[in-house]
């Protein structure tokens, strides 16, 4: 399923202009790429969050596919209801079209408050794709720490202070948590590697059952970098192996795109204001700690892949 931009550009956008995301918004790119890959016959459920807010300020909507939002933690439950309705109505002959069902949630709505509903939806086997646009903090409410916020990051609720240097917990590995549900397809992607990401969206939608993609989507506001660097930073997350690109298909891990040579994680950290305090002399050891963790996680992933697990 090769992604051809020229072909895709002909179908037009399903997330259109005039939305009110920040200049350089990573999540907006994540949504737009996903919809371009999914195509017109797609129904979207969206969790409360930045993307819900900026795309649907009444009376304007940036969506050109049917879209439903109800609450923060229930995008997965909402889409499972939509999908159940579709199944019932199809069985009764009231609808015949094949339709994709996608839920979008940020890391707040997915890793944390929405995890229960997501877990239930995955376990029940609905034929849906859940895409978490992970920008590693609660950006909609003003950059508060989440379960996805990396170790050492400054947020407004894990501020880098005189005594505590930002977040002192590791981020939870949601991709693996969802993979543990033993569903047909789980993947991790980033918006800079669009071919990999959009290919995963298309692959996921071709598979029956519950699917999950965790896509890293940098936030210039919350990560404190210049708006033109969104893609560059997304790419560095991949090249430093902080954010490996892989998929778990029927329980088997496979790295889908591998950086030829790993870039030190410092290169990624130093572009972002949220890690600025780590570069003070007294905090340099935290960077080493982060690098060690990145290396360990990568080793683990490679081992899983090599073992065919």
């Amino acid at each position: 399923m090769a992604i051809n931009l020229k072909e895709l550009s002909k179908q037009g956008d399903f997330l259109t202009s005039g939305h009110r995301a920040c200049a350089g918004c990573g999540p907006a790119i994540a949504l737009r790429q996903a919809l371009l890959a999914a195509g017109k016959d797609t129904v979207v459920a969206n969790a409360t969050g930045c993307m819900e807010v900026v795309t649907t300020i009444f009376p304007y909507t940036a969506w050109k596919v049917p879209w439903i939002h109800s609450l923060f933690e229930n995008a997965a439950a909402t889409i499972s209801g939509v999908e159940a309705a579709y199944k019932a109505l199809k069985r009764k002959g009231k609808i015949s079209k094949d339709i994709n069902f996608i839920a979008f949630g940020g890391d707040g709505g997915t890793y944390d408050i929405g995890l229960q509903a997501l877990s239930g939806t995955m376990e029940r086997g609905h034929n849906i794709l859940y895409i978490c646009y992970d920008n590693e903090a609660y950006m909609n409410t003003g950059i508060q720490r989440s379960g996805a916020t990396p170790y050492g990051a400054h947020t407004t609720t894990s501020p880098a202070g005189k005594k505590i240097p930002g977040k002192t917990q590791w981020r939870k590995d949601l991709t693996e948590i969802i993979a543990a549900h033993d569903i047909p397809y789980v993947a991790q992607a980033t918006i800079s590697e669009w071919r990999d990401y959009m290919g995963k969206v298309q692959k996921a939608l071709s598979i029956k059952g519950p699917k999950f993609i965790n896509v890293l989507a940098p936030c210039q506001l919350g990560w404190y970098y210049k708006s033109e660097d969104t893609i560059k930073i997304a790419n560095l997350a991949f090249r430093t192996r902080f954010w490996p690109l892989y998929e778990v298909e029927n329980g088997v891990h496979r790295i889908t795109k591998e950086p030829k040579k790993a870039v030190p994680v410092e290169e990624w950290l130093k572009l972002q204001g949220r890690f600025r305090h780590l570069f003070k002399d007294e905090n340099r050891k935290i960077i080493e700690k982060i690098q060690k963790r990145v290396d360990e996680r990568w080793k683990r992933l490679k081992a899983l892949e090599e073992a065919g697990l």
């Binding site: 109800s70 439950a77 889409i79 209801g81 509903a117």
Partner: peptide, 9 residues
């Protein structure tokens, strides 16, 4: 939530 989604469908 699922009921609301289903009704909206």
């Amino acid at each position: 939530s699922a009921c609301t989604g289903a009704a909206a469908a």
